[in-house]
Computed example of a mutant assay.
Amino acid sequence: MGFTPQQVNDMSMWQFLAAFDGYAKANGAKEKMSNAEADDLWKWLQEKDGG
């Protein structure tokens, strides 16, 4: 997506997901992430953040 790790760390989850959604649409994504996939991503992000 072109963000540095620092820029991603400085974003809220809402900002990151909005950027991700725009990137996906601009690059031809056909369907959104399922709720289960979003939950898995959230859990993974929380583990990476130490919490």
Rank of each mutant, 00 (worst) to 15 (best):
G2L: 12
G2Q: 11
G2V: 06
F3P: 04
T4I: 02
P5L: 12
P5R: 14
P5T: 12
P5C: 13
P5D: 15
Q6H: 04
Q7D: 01
Q7W: 09
Q7N: 05
V8N: 10
V8F: 10
V8T: 09
N9T: 08
N9H: 09
D10S: 15
D10M: 08
D10H: 06
S12C: 03
S12L: 01
M13K: 09
M13Y: 05
Q15E: 02
Q15A: 07
Q15G: 01
F16Q: 11
F16V: 03
F16S: 08
L17V: 05
L17C: 00
L17G: 01
A18C: 07
A18M: 04
A19P: 08
A19G: 05
F20R: 06
F20P: 05
D21M: 14
D21F: 06
G22R: 13
Y23H: 15
Y23R: 09
A24M: 15
A24I: 12
A24C: 14
K25L: 15
K25E: 11
A26S: 15
A26E: 14
A26L: 11
A26Q: 15
N27R: 14
G28C: 07
G28Y: 06
A29Y: 11
K30C: 02
E31T: 15
K32D: 05
K32E: 04
K32P: 04
M33E: 10
S34V: 13
S34P: 11
S34F: 13
N35A: 09
E37H: 00
A38Y: 08
D39L: 01
D40E: 14
D40L: 03
D40H: 00
L41D: 03
W42Y: 11
W42N: 00
W42T: 03
W44S: 10
L45I: 03
Q46P: 06
Q46F: 05
Q46I: 04
Q46L: 03
E47L: 13
E47H: 10
K48N: 04
K48G: 08
K48D: 07
D49H: 06
D49C: 06
G51C: 05
